[in-house]
Design a binder for these strands. Sequence first.
DNA 1: CTGAAAGCGCTTACAG
DNA 2: CTGAAAGCGCTTACAG
Lengths: 346, 346
Amino acid sequence: MARAPRQADIAAAAGVSQTTVSLVLSGSTDGSRLAEATRQRVLAAAEQLGYVPDPVATRLASSRNRMLGVYTFATAFPTAVDGFYYPILAGIEAEAAALGQDLVLFTGTGGSGERPDHRAAIRRTRIADGCLFFGRHVPEEPIDWLLGDGFPLVYVGRRDELGGRIPFVGVDYVAASAEVVGRLAALGHRQIRYLRCGDDALSSTDREQGVLAALRTARLPVRRVVVRAEAEAVDAGLISRWVADGVTAVVVEETDTGDLSAAALAAVESAGLVCPRDLSLAVLGQPKDRPDVSGFEVPRWELGRRSVRLLVDQITGARRRTDQQLLACRPVPGSTVGAAPTAPRR
Amino acid sequence: MARAPRQADIAAAAGVSQTTVSLVLSGSTDGSRLAEATRQRVLAAAEQLGYVPDPVATRLASSRNRMLGVYTFATAFPTAVDGFYYPILAGIEAEAAALGQDLVLFTGTGGSGERPDHRAAIRRTRIADGCLFFGRHVPEEPIDWLLGDGFPLVYVGRRDELGGRIPFVGVDYVAASAEVVGRLAALGHRQIRYLRCGDDALSSTDREQGVLAALRTARLPVRRVVVRAEAEAVDAGLISRWVADGVTAVVVEETDTGDLSAAALAAVESAGLVCPRDLSLAVLGQPKDRPDVSGFEVPRWELGRRSVRLLVDQITGARRRTDQQLLACRPVPGSTVGAAPTAPRR
DNA sequence: CTGAAAGCGCTTACAG
DNA sequence: CTGAAAGCGCTTACAG
């Protein structure tokens, strides 16, 4: 591979020292100003040789390289849930580009391909000026090291681990979920069921918390409202039974796969029920390709952008307090929710 | 930011020279073998200190850093056409992870955020061991430099520029398109229209070439078959006129946005026509969420994987001949194509 | 205003 | 079997 021109080559061509070339090219207007004639000579030679600085050497010598890491514990592009991650990645990319930063995707194992050694892989992250982290589980020890070293990092999604010291940009599922249930209560619904998945991720417990809070605010019963179920268990029979019991509104958690809400929607339909005539149905999120379903919109693209912004702020030293940000969701009115029937069903 | 341990620290801890540490850690079993006791001492110290090599320094000193570049001329995650790019990126990511390589996304301008300086941005690519390129247009000069320097690079998509010296992994649109038209000819269709977009990207001209080749093979007329149109111009009136003229089959180019095929599908429907009863309709590709439409499936995920594989082969020195690969598409029978009516329409 | 020198953390001949 | 030394291409005090 032929050698690319370096500062030494320019120096030789322009008849100056390599130091001078570096000074001219890094464009530090401050301090010792160089003779304009020298500057021009160096610039001309650089242009002539097609010089572009070697970012590797730059990074080694200085300590910034305008590269932002993105660390995912599983796969960066999960195909099963592409609708979920793609907008976040797109937001990250857009903001990174806007700020003139490149992105390094640490695709997990960091070399060996064998059992992922998070310690090594996460350390590798230091190649960048800072790093964004994704993933349901936080590998506390290595993250703690990074944090302790002052390495700039931001989690995409809310994180409470390590005594709340992890900077993040998350989504306010609590408020958004409470808003949805509050809407139902205002419409007169008294018998509500909340269908959630079995997994206890933060995004799940946050939603449940919002649901319960809204019920309490509306002075509605809280007992027996929450039902944990896998998508396979949600069928016409279940929904029919609820309606027979007097349930007038069902709220469904939207998970990253969208399985649960899809199952609920299908169950309602195959039970021969029509929303909102027979039953009001809301989803805590927005099911794919179903803008007609009542719920809320998770600001995924914005999540990506804001995460990058926070990370860059950390790197440049700006912003030291508001290291934990929660993004609000936009309510989606939809058409699957309506007023509760005035007469009690039987 | 606290300093991460380096080889010198390990050397001090283990009571050996930094050179020895490097030798042990780079695990070169070949040549001078080190005393097992020394090895163990170094390894233990490295483990104890939580050592992970600095990839920047590694890259500067040697010339590999297990990082693969991905250079996109526009935006890496175009949201408008996410269905198109996402699978490719997912494939790239999967293969990179499988091969233990990280990915560097060069998000365009490479620093300044002003007018994209492709020269500089592309040179920046050298930070990685090799680079994947995306994009309709090839900036010939900088690519030529890279090629001349022997820098490993692979285009995602077919490329004929620079005298055919650009390595690529592309899609065989010619063969896939010919297969679709051949199918129609075999079903007795004699009057066919090919609807294509106005843009002359390689993926467009390849498809047209395939269409024409198949027509010739079937000894069908070629004149007036090809119709260039924007999506907005494709309406019920156009389709109805064609059918009135005796056209029994319409073939539509699938572009990255999917606009044209969507317009054609909508036009057929609003003309009150049913496929394949009134008209056979095939798409040169696969419209989103419409597996029922006859056409072919572009192996996008595989395209990503193969591109990475070819790039890594180039980096490691394997494979020097088959630097240009074309991937076959899987035909999608679908249900929008049927036998031509035996009696000529009028 | 400009240059010689050290250093960033590694690898790689080359000696011993 | 192990170490001293040079070098990868930059930046950054520090002298002149």
